[in-house]
Design a protein around this nucleic acid. Structure first.
Length: 575
RNA sequence: UGGGGCGUCGUCAAGUGGCUAAGACACAGGAUUUUGAUUCCUGCAUUCGGAGGUUCGAGUCCUCCCGCCCCAGCCA
């Protein structure tokens, strides 16, 4: 096993501390059993990755196990398609639940028996109040609730009623099984919470076997107990539910006594993570689907070119705590750059082509030059790239009237073409009608082959380029942040949709790539030199016709300088 | 306004009464560079939401105050 690099060890967090203490005190018989419990009603996103890494990571670190358990107690919202995508994503992230793939729905019989046990001990009752009446009886944050008139039915009557609920004798909403706790509890969760409701809906796994389904608060803690979970880790919004979690387990004869611990869910700048909002983005057509490369879903990130390792490292770096937090996306971006810098083969690709004719280079001749595949990895070897009289360079690498700090190509200036020759710009050809620059005439110095001048003269810039007659053509998708504001949902007055970045996707259809890129396979990742990291799309690419997605740009100091110069030019706005 | 939580650098986050308050990202300088990339240096909280108090000593303990988050689904 590769030794963890310094600073990459799992940082301490309070849940880890609890486990260490429990292990020391033999609280759970020295065992650590966690679980990742998604509801199959949507795709996993980067926030779930935090939970997955935490739960599986904790188990791995302390010699325990982590189960994958689908919390499928609401058939109206859940689908097996989501089960499949979740399994794919967890596996892709690099975690293995082995033979421990569980479903809350597998426990429906046992859960039903637990409910009967609660009724028999006088701690649950069937309530015939309507949903509206239940709400009214619940009271408010500051006022206690009032008891349901059905609260004191006998055990026999409750048992009978509950059996009849299960038998389908009542309509949806006609009645519900409730825990008999305390309608005056300051914790609203404890005011006789519903345990079972009637749903005459086909369940994706149990079919029509049931018409009553357990609520989260009843099913989750008992599922944990059934599986012998020791540390039930969830997010902070369930903190109020912990009292009920404990109540259920304390009032039933359960096989194990798990404990719930809560950590803060993450927010990520320039995006949204709530399932409701992600769904909205899809249904309103702002993005294509769950796996749109702009989505913070694991399938979106995967398609964007993020690797499992980069996401795991990101999750390790953000830590686990109880305070609200918004992680800067640059941390995520840094995680993938860091990996791809080490691993991605370099290639040259011209996204916005500007034709260059080397006037002193013979027609009908070509040249083959050796390029290094990855300067960070000597084992990556080299490749040959063709050179000829007609080339393409990046439009933004030439300026007719360059500012001081611009040291790329300009009239009369000499620059290096990477791995090729020094060239000097002699003429600028423009479209007569529009004035647009359509071609450059340059000369090359044959003595600089490979990129070095024998006389030792230096150039200030090295440009990437592609030989025109040899180039492959492809579509390249430039993805950027989905929202233009760091906190798209921050202003309650503004619909987050209004904060969408209109430039989150730019599709370029006339990009010229070095020939080898024309046959790249789906999923392959490259660094396009001086531009960024790109991968071949896995959905829209055809054999021999790849489509490239930009994962992330390279850090771009020049862009920053340009921006600063622009800001200087503009008169400062009064603050 | 009832209850439950949380406030340490721009963003995360260590810190569990006793060296000069870790580290990462971001940012700003500089060096190296055939990617304005990478890499490498350097800088970046006299102060921990605020005010009092306890203590020889407080980010850590106490009191009060301020701010933010969660809970009134037959969702999870």
């Amino acid at each position: 096993m590769e030794k963890q690099r310094a600073g990459e060890a799992t940082p301490p967090n309070f849940i880890r501390d609890i486990i260490i203490k429990d292990l020391k005190n033999n609280t759970h018989g020295g065992r650590v059993i966690t679980r990742f419990p998604p509801e199959p009603n949507g795709y996993l996103h980067i926030g779930h990755a935090k939970s997955i890494c935490l739960n599986f990571g904790l188990a791995a670190e302390f010699g325990g196990i982590c189960n994958l358990r689908f919390d499928d107690t609401n058939p109206a919202k859940e689908e097996s398609a989501y089960v499949d995508s979740i399994k794919t994503d967890v596996r892709w992230l690099g975690f293995d639940w082995e033979d421990r793939l569980y479903y809350a729905s597998n426990y429906f019989d046992r859960l039903y028996a637990f409910a009967e046990e609660l009724i028999r001990s006088g701690k649950a009752y069937v309530d015939h109040l309507s949903p509206e009446e239940i709400r009214r009886h619940r009271g408010t944050l500051t006022r206690p609730g009032t008891n349901s008139p059905y609260r004191d039915r006998s055990v026999e009557e409750n048992l009978d009623l509950f059996h009849r609920m299960r038998a389908g004798e009542f309509e949806e909403g006609a009645c519900v099984l409730r825990a008999k706790i305390d309608m005056a509890s300051p914790n609203i969760i404890m005011r006789d919470p519903p345990l079972y409701r009637i749903r005459k809906v086909r369940h994706h796994r149990t079919g029509d076997a049931w018409c009553i389904y357990p609520m989260y608060d009843f099913a989750h803690c008992l599922s944990d107990a059934i599986e012998g979970i020791t540390h039930s880790v969830c997010t902070l919004e369930f903190e109020n539910n912990r009292e009920l979690y404990d109540w259920v387990l304390d009032n039933l004869d359960v096989p194990a006594r798990p404990r719930q611990y809560e950590f803060a869910r993450m927010n990520l700048s320039y995006t949204v993570l709530s399932k409701r909002k992600l769904v909205q983005l899809i249904t309103e057509g702002h993005v294509k689907d769950w796996d749109d490369p702009r989505m913070p879903t694991l399938s979106g990130l995967r398609r964007r070119g993020y690797t499992p390792g980069s996401i795991r490292r990101f999750c390790r770096r953000i830590g686990v705590a109880r305070r609200d937090s918004t992680i800067d996306v640059s941390l995520l971006e840094n995680s993938i750059r860091e990996e791809l810098n080490r691993t991605a083969p370099r290639r040259m690709a011209v996204l916005h082509p500007l034709k260059v004719v080397i006037t002193n280079y013979p027609e009908n001749r070509s040249d083959s030059l050796t390029a290094i595949n990855n300067p960070q990895d000597p084992n990556a070897g080299t490749r040959e790239v063709p050179f000829s009289r007609e080339l393409y360079i990046e439009q933004e690498d030439f300026m007719e009237d360059p500012p001081r700090k611009f040291f790329r190509l300009a009239p009369g200036r000499e620059v290096r073409l990477r791995y090729a020759y020094f060239i000097t710009c002699t003429d600028v050809i423009k479209d007569e009608a529009s004035g647009e620059i359509i071609e450059l005439r340059c000369t090359y110095d044959p003595k600089t082959r490979g990129g070095n001048a024998p006389d030792g003269r230096k150039v200030k810039a090295t440009l990437h380029w592609v030989s025109a007659p040899h180039a492959a053509t492809a579509d390249v998708r430039l993805y950027d942040r989905l929202f233009k504001t760091p906190n798209p949902t921050g202003d309650a007055q503004v619909d987050f949709i209004a904060n969408l970045n209109p430039d989150s996707l730019k599709t370029l259809s006339d990009c010229r790539l070095e020939p080898s890129l024309g046959t790249a396979d789906a999923g392959q990742q490259f660094q396009f030199e001086r531009l960024g990291y790109f991968c071949v799309d896995t959905r829209d690419a055809l054999p021999g016709k790849p489509v490239f997605n930009r994962t992330v740009t390279l850090r771009d100091t020049w862009a920053r300088i340009e921006k600063q110069m622009q800001q200087k030019k503009k008169p400062r706005k009064k603050s």
